[in-house]
Computed example of a mutant assay.
Amino acid sequence: MADSARANDPRSEASKEKDLISRGDYTSTPFGKTTFFLTRALDPFIQYQILAHGAGTGLLHSVGLRTLSPGLPTQTGISAIDALGLSPYRLALFGMAVGSTVKQNIWVAFLSGEPMTVKNSLIIGAFNSFFNSLASYAFLIRATSASTESTFPQPALLVGGTLYVTGILTELVSEIQRKRFKSNPRNKGKVYTGGLWAWARHINYGAYTVWRAGYALASGGWIMGGVLGAFFFYDFANRGVPILNEYCEKRYGEDWDKFKKQTKYRLIPYIY
């Protein structure tokens, strides 16, 4: 299956090895995509155990790190939410974990046509859970937590939450727009240049960077938000965009060159 999934990918072998998603092939991979779906669906349960019950904090305490007290549970009058027993801040972070799972599972179930192996599904799922868990623990540790003020909501949560919502909705909407375009038989072999993609050629990558930075900022404060935002920006600018650009150049030819001229930004409009 791996060989057939690469058959229509015109990129160099070096580029293919750096990409966890095969391009140019639409072979059905139900086991791989089901693995992705289930792996991502597990993440909210992991984050809940960390935020609600302090799972893993015993190890942090053993090395001298202090963690926040649980805080007063949220009272919204909605039984399903109040039953979680999370403070307002923790509830917001848990919502971000749930939101990332929902967005990515919508993508794998309805928007992505490329094949996905079980191995790569596990890698991508573990990658996202790692960074979500990093955010949860950064919030719990007193030395790094963004919850350093008595009033709620704190500035870090307001700014981080805004970046998160903006980024994750931009990523989802852009992928829905592209899917609708590609689903029309008249557009076969054409590059999509409309909608949000008219603002940046890889707007979905840029949006992922934004919501990841926002999630980190809301959890671990301004420094963590900046560091992780820079990490994802660097990775996409130096790995993700170049290897996908190579594919698009070879698949779309002059149409891709024209798109690059009319849409000069690669990841984030007016920035890069």
Results as ranks from 00 to 15, higher is better:
residue 259 F to T: 05
residue 65 L to H: 06
residue 70 P to T: 07
residue 14 A to R: 14
residue 66 R to A: 15
residue 21 I to D: 07
residue 225 G to V: 00
residue 28 S to F: 12
residue 130 F to T: 14
residue 161 G to N: 05
residue 135 A to L: 03
residue 121 S to H: 03
residue 178 R to P: 06
residue 194 G to K: 10
residue 17 E to H: 09
residue 157 L to K: 03
residue 130 F to M: 05
residue 23 R to C: 09
residue 46 I to C: 08
residue 263 T to K: 02
residue 209 T to Y: 05
residue 23 R to E: 06
residue 175 E to L: 13
residue 13 E to K: 09
residue 272 Y to G: 07
residue 93 L to R: 01
residue 57 T to W: 07
residue 146 A to V: 00
residue 228 L to R: 03
residue 40 R to C: 07
residue 185 P to C: 10
residue 99 G to N: 10
residue 124 I to P: 00
residue 39 T to P: 00
residue 196 L to C: 01
residue 23 R to K: 15
residue 74 T to G: 10
residue 60 L to E: 04
residue 91 L to C: 07
residue 162 T to R: 05
residue 73 P to S: 14
residue 29 T to R: 04
residue 16 K to Q: 14
residue 163 L to S: 08
residue 239 R to S: 10
residue 162 T to Q: 08
residue 161 G to P: 10
residue 81 I to F: 13
residue 245 N to I: 09
residue 252 Y to G: 01
residue 210 V to R: 00
residue 252 Y to S: 02
residue 22 S to T: 09
residue 199 W to P: 00
residue 238 N to M: 07
residue 226 G to V: 07
residue 29 T to W: 01
residue 61 H to F: 08
residue 149 E to H: 14
residue 67 T to N: 04
residue 32 G to R: 01
residue 262 Q to Y: 08
residue 101 T to W: 03
residue 165 V to L: 15
residue 53 H to A: 12
residue 50 I to G: 02
residue 133 S to L: 09
residue 180 R to A: 15
residue 188 K to P: 06
residue 102 V to E: 06
residue 197 W to D: 02
residue 127 F to R: 10
residue 112 S to I: 08
residue 168 I to T: 08
residue 232 F to Y: 13
residue 120 N to C: 09
residue 136 S to C: 15
residue 115 P to W: 01
residue 188 K to C: 05
residue 112 S to G: 07
residue 50 I to Q: 00
residue 184 N to V: 14
residue 161 G to M: 09
residue 238 N to R: 13
residue 146 A to E: 03
residue 61 H to R: 12
residue 245 N to L: 06
residue 167 G to V: 00
residue 261 K to G: 15
residue 252 Y to I: 05
residue 236 F to G: 03
residue 163 L to Q: 09
residue 124 I to K: 00
residue 74 T to H: 12
residue 53 H to G: 09
residue 91 L to N: 04
residue 244 L to D: 08
residue 258 K to G: 12
residue 9 D to M: 11
residue 146 A to G: 15
residue 181 F to V: 13
residue 2 A to Q: 14
residue 53 H to F: 13
residue 92 A to S: 13
residue 186 R to F: 08
residue 16 K to V: 06
residue 241 V to K: 01
residue 175 E to P: 00
residue 171 E to P: 02
residue 166 T to S: 15
residue 268 I to P: 00
residue 4 S to K: 14
residue 233 F to H: 04
residue 242 P to V: 13
residue 179 K to N: 14
residue 112 S to W: 01
residue 117 T to P: 03
residue 232 F to P: 00
residue 241 V to M: 02
residue 11 R to Q: 05
